[in-house]
Amino acid sequence: MDPSATRVQMSNRRIGVLGGDPQLSVAAALRRAGLDVADAEPPPKQMNDAQLARFGFAAASVRAGRLGDVRHLLQLVQEATGERQPRHWVWKDAAGRFFDGLRPGLDPASADRAEVESCRRAHLAALGGLLAQLDDLVLPLCRTAGVFDAADGTVYPGPVPGARLPRGCKLVLAAHSLADLEADFQALHACLTALRPGLRLHLVVLAPPQPAPEALAARITLQTLAADWAGRLHGVRHDTILDALIGRLAAPDADPRLGPLLARLFAAEDVAAALVDAAAPPRTDPTEAPATTPADRRARREARAKRKKRAGPDARVVCEDELLEAFS
């Protein structure tokens, strides 16, 4: 297999990642690998890194928080398609201000409940638009248990210290059974492929940040299930090599050589075969811009001059002389 060919193939495909936060961002790892991961809720240009992290920008293709739980993913996709409406998702902080309990911490609390509702509607619309356009959707998985509202079964990322829950909302922590995981993934797969026929789902099982025995057990469970789903369900892909590489690349001190390797493997139909190919010296990437010639440079200069002429006389933003004029 020609690795450069796989690069070209991926460059024509629209890739999305559902779930991620600054501590664990598969989207960031894939971007570091050179893949063009879609962002349906992009940050303002020039937003600094601290703000990006605080408000959950760029950690995935939408600002939904870490997710990582199949049922939570299913619930979010169903919400975006209008198939599900959680009942008690607007919570209050200790000061009585409203916030989105389904993605706490991403937006500041608001005195106006309508603002929180408006932001969630926009978030779901962005997700719906994204899902309808993707060719590849990466689903990072890391949880086999969740916090639920006993009233309607809605999954929440977790309790929020000091939060006042709506009347009727009672949070309980529960582990998913294997049957639940299986049913939820089947439903998620059906929902996503109905929305976007031909969509490829890439399951990435993340290593737990804390090597607690329960987390390790969850990881093994998810890897086993993901391998099974990939074997049975059309368009579902999973490989433990990619799990490991993405996990390593998500680390702040990742080896930069991992990026190009990951990009090749991610695009490959057969990861193990591509791994062998990747050991060969890389060929010139045909997606790279060709070397410029004097004729190219001249053409660009002429195009720039033409554009400038078309723009007409700019409004003067003179700053050099006006001070001297005023003070003379």
């Binding site: 303002p44 703000q51 408000f55 937006d107 500041p108 608001s110 603002e115 926009a122 619309a125 962005a126």
Partner: peptide
């Protein structure tokens, strides 16, 4: 940001995010 005229081509920010930025 919240309070401005809706435009589906633009990304909606919470007003607190816009203010902070």
């Amino acid at each position: 940001w919240y309070g401005l005229a809706d435009d589906p081509r633009k990304t909606l920010l919470h007003s607190g995010v816009a203010t902070d930025f």
